[in-house]
Write a protein that binds this DNA or RNA. Structure first.
Length: 483
DNA sequence: ATGTAC
């Protein structure tokens, strides 16, 4: 296990495990943590996993971990690793099983006071329009040909069907559609799972949350995003469902032969990978992008369903019930990006697993209205605690591969949480605090209890203190829908 | 996260 004395303090929010810590490391590990969060992270294998990632072929200094880090499959959730496109590898475990798990935020002009009497009806309607739970099927039953179109078009598939607006797409990472997605690199089994699950929420930590915009920290950015104190907003946290999960499973299996073929030495089998510039690596990236596009489309369809719920509940009761898109951003993704390394541009594959892209001001990738400010970052908290809107900075480009945190981060395993927490009690407590809850299962609710997570405010203070994101708004949940 | 085990 890594010990505290092996970790060098740079400042109150930034620490380092030098590349000399273990002889197989090719890069250092940079940690964005307070001492308290660092001590918490010594309890699991997340730092060992970050050190392992620092041995990957072509990895560029440094591997980064965020304050919400915890142990994952082969690679920490809350980790970022950039590998050179020229001679580096891509690793499915460093992107995650839920490919393009991400968050979408929609904002309204509905004042909380006006909405309050209808919130229980709203929770019921959202729960009815957005199917949730493990293995749940939705209203979109796609043929394999149609699913292939979703893989290629992402959220643009929804636009063609009148289920999205141009503004929705413009305010989505990559316009909701990654290029070079190739459904022919996706297994039949993945497609069978995916074709009935489009437009569903899933389970685990995926949720819909109705929030009160409680406090604005950056009025200029908040105004550009249409966020006004006292109004309602809707947060959607979801990914690529069984489709992305099956694709990751398939490639974790497939790429084992590539590890052998290219003679890659790995400290952990779970870091299975292939050269980016190889048939195996290209196939995985093409399939990963298909899953990413599926997830963009999925969140779009959930947003559309949520708008129907808002209309049903609020039409004729409040003046303007429209939900406008603020942004949609992934936190489990591999992206080919150009970053300045030692003053020179370098093309890298940035693996972000439980880490959110947080581009600073000036990037052409951002919609025009956000370009002078930086990219919106959406940070869902644990159930019943705050969620946050942040914005990317110059510092995040220089220090963390244009990335920041993604959420609260687990402290209790699912198993432990289920053992220690009663779902029914938690639901009653949340309801007492004025949060309307709809949950598919009480054990599932217990797994996602706030006690199972770190304090999201502390995580946000850390990234803000380190300068790798700036606070824009704090959101307080008033209704939660979970699988 | 996940048809929570092929």
């Amino acid at each position: 296990m890594v010990r505290l004395q092996d970790i060098r303090k740079i400042n109150d929010y930034e620490w380092e495990i030098p590349a000399t810590y273990r002889e197989d490391m090719r890069a250092s590990v940079r940690l964005f943590v307070t001492r308290r969060l660092l001590e918490a992270s010594l309890e699991d294998l997340s730092l060992e996993q970050a050190i392992n990632a620092a041995t990957l072929p072509g990895v560029v200094d440094p591997v980064v971990v965020m304050p919400d880090m915890h142990q994952g499959y082969g690679f920490p959730i809350g980790g970022v690793a950039a590998t050179r496109v020229s001679d580096g590898v891509v690793s499915p475990g460093a992107i995650g099983y839920d490919i393009n798990c991400g968050v979408r935020l929609l904002a309204s002009q509905i004042p909380y006071e006006q909405a309050e009497p209808y919130l229980d009806d709203l929770a019921t309607a959202l729960n009815r329009y957005c199917p949730s739970g493990v293995g749940t099927e939705g209203e979109y039953r796609l043929s394999h040909e149609e699913l292939d179109q979703v893989c290629r078009l992402g959220a643009r598939w929804a636009l063609k069907r009148g289920l999205a607006s141009e503004e929705d797409l413009r305010r989505t990472e990559e316009g909701g559609c990654l290029e070079d997605a190739d459904p022919t690199r996706v297994s039949h089994k993945a497609k069978e799972r995916g074709r009935t699950q489009l437009g569903t929420l899933g389970a685990g930590n995926h949720f819909l949350e109705v929030d009160l915009i409680e406090q604005i920290f950056d009025p200029e950015a908040a105004q550009a995003m249409g966020l006004q104190e006292g109004n309602l907003a809707l947060l959607i946290h979801c990914g690529s469902r069984g489709f992305g999960h099956q694709i990751c499973t398939d490639y974790v299996q497939d790429l084992q032969s590539a590890v052998k073929k290219y003679g890659i030495r790995l400290p952990d089998r779970e870091l299975v990978c292939a050269p980016i510039d190889s048939p195996e690596g290209r196939n995985y990236l093409a399939a990963m992008r298909a899953a990413a596009n599926y997830a963009f489309c999925n969140r779009q369809l959930l947003a559309h369903a949520a708008r129907r719920a808002f209309e049903e509940v609020f039409a004729g009761k409040v003046r303007n019930w429209h939900l406008h898109q603020v942004y949609d951003i992934a936190h489990n993704m591999g992206k080919i990006e150009t970053h300045l390394v030692n003053g020179k541009p370098l093309k890298v594959c940035v693996h972000r697993k439980g880490a959110t892209r947080a581009f600073g001001p000036g990037f052409t990738e951002l919609p025009e209205e956000y370009r002078p400010l930086g990219q919106p970052v959406l940070v869902p908290g644990s159930m019943g605690t705050a969620s946050w809107v942040l914005i990317g900075t110059e510092t995040s480009m220089q220090r963390s591969w244009g990335s920041t945190c993604h959420g609260a981060g687990r402290v209790l395993s699912r198993h432990k949480a289920k053992k220690e927490i009663r779902g029914e009690r938690l639901r009653d407590e949340l309801e007492r605090r004025g949060i309307h809850v709809r949950a598919g299962s009480m054990s599932g609710l217990a797994e996602e209890a706030p006690q199972a997570y770190k304090d999201v405010d502390e995580v946000v203070e850390t990234v803000a203190g380190a300068g790798i994101a700036r606070k824009v708004a704090r959101l307080r949940p008033v209704a939660v829908i979970k699988g």
